[in-house]
């Protein structure tokens, strides 16, 4: 009995070989998974370029959409609209987000901070379409019109928790000794925070803002019932405004080939906008903040 179990406890040669084989197979499968995970990006980029590049011409950047059924036209208004919406989103999301980050990093007690951080993380997980509904109820219904304002607010509110968390993170990376040096000079706390701490963490804050902007730049759902879309130039921020993602969506689900072509072109432009932003972020964060 005891001799038996002793023999069982010692792995035989064939068992060891089996274990090695299992290990090799599993390892290979993991490598394969990594490949599979990357494939969609390459496929998407491949088709964006193949389908989109041919439809990209001068008109695409300078003309308005043509009426239903007519060939040609462009997305000039959507491109401008996206930039306008991003500008408004930043005007809301950056100050609130950065100041909130300042509170978390510089003032807040442990308990309060835990609650606020937790809530911010949960807010980050709220579906973007819900933001669209909320802003619809908040701004579209009372003012009785879809508007660029509403779209900007929807995107801006989404940015707040994102910017807040990254700002806090990078401000905490600024060594305490700089704050102390400032205090020892008799400088007011708010000046220490703005001139010394924020300036030192600036690169990280800008990075966080750019990431947040890149994320909301591609958002469609929160704009569907706020900015709504517009086939013409918007002359007024209280009118509906077009945006690239909205235009891509409505062209993609349309029955016209020419619009499909334009949808690809729009998607290519949007993707480039986002990739370039990510590239800038990458360059900014290469030189880590000094410590």
């Amino acid at each position: 009995m005891s001799a038996d179990s002793y023999n069982q406890a010692r792995p035989s040669i064939s068992q060891q070989a089996r274990r090695r084989w299992v290990s090799r197979i599993v390892t290979a499968l993991m490598g394969l998974s990594a490949l599979l995970v990357m494939t969609p990006l390459f496929l998407v980029l491949y088709f964006l370029i193949r389908e989109g590049a041919s439809a990209l011409d001068w008109h695409f950047f300078t003309q308005l959409p043509k009426p239903t059924g007519e060939v040609g036209g462009g997305m000039a208004n959507a491109i401008v609209g996206t930039l306008v919406l991003l500008g408004m989103a930043a005007a809301i999301g950056v100050p609130i987000g950065v100041m909130g980050g300042v509170y978390l990093a510089e003032y807040g007690g442990e308990r309060t901070n835990d609650v606020i951080r937790f809530t911010a993380d949960v807010l980050n997980g709220i579906p973007s379409i819900v933001w669209g509904m909320v802003v619809y109820a908040m701004l579209v219904v009372p003012f009785k019109t879809f508007s660029a304002y509403a779209g900007g607010v929807a995107l801006g509110l989404m940015m707040v928790p994102m910017v807040m968390r990254t700002t806090e993170e990078v401000m905490l990376l600024v060594p305490q000794s700089y704050r102390e040096a400032g205090l020892a000079l008799g400088i007011a706390r708010w000046k220490i925070i703005t001139v010394i701490v924020i300036r030192t963490a600036m690169r990280g804050i800008v990075t966080g803002v750019l990431i947040a902007l890149a994320r909301v730049a591609g958002e469609t759902a929160p704009l569907l019932f706020t900015a709504l879309g517009n086939n013409f130039w918007s002359h007024n921020l209280s009118e509906p405004i077009s945006a690239l993602p909205l235009q891509i969506f409505s062209y993609a689900i349309s029955p016209y080939d020419d619009w499909h072509r334009q949808a690809w072109a729009g998607a290519l432009v949007l993707m480039l906008l986002i990739l370039v932003t990510n590239l800038v972020v990458r360059m900014l964060s290469r030189g880590r903040p000094q410590s």
Binding site: M99, G100, V102, Y103, I116, M138, M164, R189, W190
Partner: peptide, 30 residues
């Protein structure tokens, strides 16, 4: 600057509390 310090603090507090306000806003509007 003591006055400014106070206001700056209140501003930061307000921004941080916005987060709590937002979650309440979302729930309430829906």
């Amino acid at each position: 600057s003591r006055w400014a310090d106070r206001n700056f603090y209140l501003l930061a507090l307000l921004a941080a509390l916005t987060i709590l306000g937002l979650i309440a806003l979302v729930g309430w509007e829906l």
